[in-house]
């Protein structure tokens, strides 16, 4: 957020590092069944990659890649994926968030269907955590203005 901050080493390293951070975040979300990880942790890493871009470059770089509209949309779509999977189970005839019933629409047996439902809600949680982290950081760091310069 500091204006006259122009260091080519930091900018280049952060630009190269960001895609790898995001790939790693998706790995942590998707591989959460077999290793330490899951939606909360992967979402935090994904949000941190955007925050790194804000710190190294400036706020406009991030606003070009992730606009505020998209961010707010992802924030609510994550909760909707979660609640939607629960409602899907309800509509198929089981209890709310009882993923075992998903085997009627997925080509797996009932036990694997539970793992699939878990993966679906992890993705929803990851999306919400990522966009909430970015949104809170941008709002607090720029005083709610979403533009360059220190907040008054």
């Amino acid at each position: 957020m500091i204006k006259d901050f122009d260091n080519i080493i930091i900018k280049t390293v952060c630009r190269i590092l960001t895609p790898f951070l995001q790939i790693f975040a998706f790995y942590v979300i998707a591989h959460g069944h077999y290793s330490p990880g899951g939606g909360f942790q992967g979402g935090c890493i994904l949000g941190a990659s955007f925050i790194l871009l804000v710190i190294a470059h400036d706020i406009n770089t991030v606003k070009k890649r992730m606009s505020e509209k998209l961010n707010t949309f992802l924030c609510s779509i994550g909760v909707m994926i979660y609640a939607g999977i629960g409602l899907l189970c309800l509509m198929l005839g089981a209890n709310y968030l009882d993923y075992g019933i998903l085997h009627t629409i997925l080509p797996v047996d009932a036990v694997k269907a539970r793992a699939m439902g878990t993966l679906g809600i992890e993705i929803g949680v990851g999306l919400t955590v990522m966009s909430v982290m970015v949104s809170i950081f941008l709002n607090i760091a720029s005083g709610g203005k979403h533009e360059e310069g220190a907040p008054e």
Binding site: V132, I136, N139, I140, G143, P151
Partner: peptide, 11 residues
């Protein structure tokens, strides 16, 4: 979450 909301209130 509480930390973020508290910082916003403090601002």
């Amino acid at each position: 979450s509480t930390f973020g909301v508290a910082l916003a209130l403090i601002m």
